[in-house]
């Protein structure tokens, strides 16, 4: 009984840490964008204020049941991802529900949220939402290919389908997978651009073009749920990358340094590049990232 209670408490702590870190990263990315554009920019805690305000807004929108479920699906998907990804190695406050094959399960869970959101956005009947959903799913088809190729290469190379197994392999050999399978790392990082949806791959929520796309009918508390789930998901994805390619982290400080270094890649690439069109984005993902993914597979099979 005590173990279960401890696990539940740990899950709550994990969620809170993910929420705070994700929100702060979001705020820092806004600050970085502003500094690159020679602006002062909002304070780094601006996202917390925005989230609190959105949460305290009244919401009188009704488009049907699925519309209410959309943000909930997103949240469920984010929390499931977070629970499977090991946050720290050996820490009682961050339990994880990993099992043999969780890497494959994770591939499905990570697409579950956007699909639920797509259903919710479809029910609003807003044409911008519909266009945003089609763009989002096209982009997902784009970046899933290098991402899956990279993960499959790792699975072949180390004969394991669990994240902890890959972490153990890194601990055993002493080198990070980022160095021992560099092609998989490059392919995965390039796929990360699509996952984070910063410019130039912000084709889904393009505010000036699509009026923020799938979320255009969601305000107030819906947006609050989406914003928090986005923050949690950001943290979960970054932690997953750190676990897979950078050997995980022993304490929170090292985790923050590693995740933030990874997070800067899409942010800094984003502030200097304008938005792609949908077909350009898909072509980009099916070009060099997929090539590196195939190289990774070749490396895993023959070397």
């Amino acid at each position: 009984m005590e173990v279960v209670l401890m696990d539940i408490l740990g899950a709550v702590v994990t969620f809170l840490v993910a929420f705070v870190v994700g929100m702060t990263y979001g705020g820092l990315s806004r600050k970085i964008t502003a500094r690159v554009q020679n602006r002062k920019g909002p304070p780094f805690y601006q996202n917390f204020i925005d989230a609190f305000k959105l949460g305290s807004k009244k919401s009188a929108i009704h488009h049907g049941v699925m519309h209410h479920f959309g943000p909930a699906f997103l949240m469920v998907s984010s929390v499931m991802t977070l629970m499977i990804v090991p946050v720290l190695t050996h820490n009682q406050w961050f339990p994880n529900l990993n099992f043999q094959g969780d890497l494959i399960f994770l591939l499905y869970v990570m697409t579950f949220g956007p699909l639920g959101m797509a259903l919710g956005a479809g029910q609003t009947g807003n044409p911008n939402s519909a266009i945003g959903v089609t763009r989002g799913l096209s982009q997902m088809v784009g970046f899933e290919i290098p991402w899956v190729l990279a993960l499959v290469a790792l699975m072949i190379q180390y004969h394991t389908t669990s994240i902890t197994g890959l972490m153990a392999a890194q601990a055993h050999s002493g080198t990070w997978l980022m160095f021992s399978s560099p092609f998989a790392f490059v392919a995965a990082v390039m796929a990360m651009f699509g996952m984070f949806r910063y410019s130039p791959f912000d084709i889904v929520g393009a505010p000036t073009e699509l009026a923020s796309g799938p979320i255009s009918e969601n305000g107030g508390k819906y947006l609050f749920v989406m914003m928090s789930s986005g923050s949690v998901f950001t943290f979960a994805k970054l932690t997953l990358y750190v676990d897979l390619f950078m050997g995980g982290a022993d304490n929170l400080l090292i985790l923050l340094i590693k995740t933030f270094a990874l997070y800067l890649i899409p942010v800094l690439y984003g502030v200097t590049t304008p938005r792609y069109r949908t077909e350009q984005a898909v072509r980009w993902f099916w070009g060099w990232p997929s090539f590196f993914g195939l190289l990774a597979i070749l490396q895993a099979v023959f070397f």
């Binding site: 000036t208 009026a211 923020s212 255009s216």
Partner: peptide, 9 residues
């Protein structure tokens, strides 16, 4: 800036 009336204050 907000994109739609639903999100705007």
């Amino acid at each position: 800036g907000a994109a739609t009336p639903r999100q705007a204050d």
